[in-house]
Amino acid sequence: MIEAQGLTRSFGRRRAVTQLDLCVRPGEIVGLLGPNGAGKTTSVRMLAGLLAPDAGFARIGGHDVQRRPQAARCALGYLPEGAPLYGEMSVLAFLLFVARARGLRRAVLEQRLQELVHALELEPLLARTVATLSKGQRRRVALAQAVLHDPPALILDEPGDGLDAGQQAGVRALLRRLARDRAILVCTQQLEEVPRLCDRVAILAYGRLVAEDTPAGLAARSRYRGAVSFQAPAAGPVRAALGLLPEVDTVETDGVSGRITVLPKPGRELLPRVQALLASYHVLPRALELEGGRIEDVFRSLTAAPGGEDAP
């Protein structure tokens, strides 16, 4: 379990994180989202025991990270921001160093290495020097060191950054498998990954937790929930007619794809009316879709500055 209660931290006169309460239970993956400067890294560093909070406390696997740091670190697998590694070491030597520092027995280490080499496709990298690896390869090695000791809790800062689609799917599958009996906190800016990876999402803005919900619950708060989108050639007249429907709030057209999205007024159902209108205009829509909501939209509205600009 990963727990934070009332975590607060300032740097000089600037309050970076204020009263953060968060709980990640075994069996779930929680995504920690927020724009740059929202306090994600400060929160993660406090949770990992790398930064002392001014107030509040954090626990990893039931161990207070300030009072029992060694026990907490034993229970935690941590992937720091940017996946820093020792460039002069070979991948195998680096993983052996981590295993030695964590006091892993040889038999356990061999079994874990075998699993991770397979799951993260590390076999061709083991003899290579870390400095010669690509960004994605480094990320996989960094992920391997985080899960090498099979910890009950994982904190991963941007685990999918720099990976191609196939590797991201591999990492996602590995994390889902690990999450069966582990608590995993994933710090990410890749919003499209959130519904596929996370069971729950926590959004930080200006150092405060502004939302905590399931991806579906969060998407349901979006003004795009119940929106109807489609593509249609020469849809100028029908677009104007859609805007006049009493159920319609806004009609948007994507400048690149030309896809039309019709947003409903709160609580109104659009699909039958839109279909009927399209039929009356003899327009045959392509890829007509009823949207469940967009997390990106909710994220933007929750993290926007009061003046309308994005948070710093």
Partner: peptide, 14 residues
């Protein structure tokens, strides 16, 4: 400078 201090200090090494 390389950020590996964070990695090292997150290990159970006093």
């Amino acid at each position: 400078q390389a950020g590996t201090l964070e990695l090292l200090l997150a290990l159970p090494v006093t």
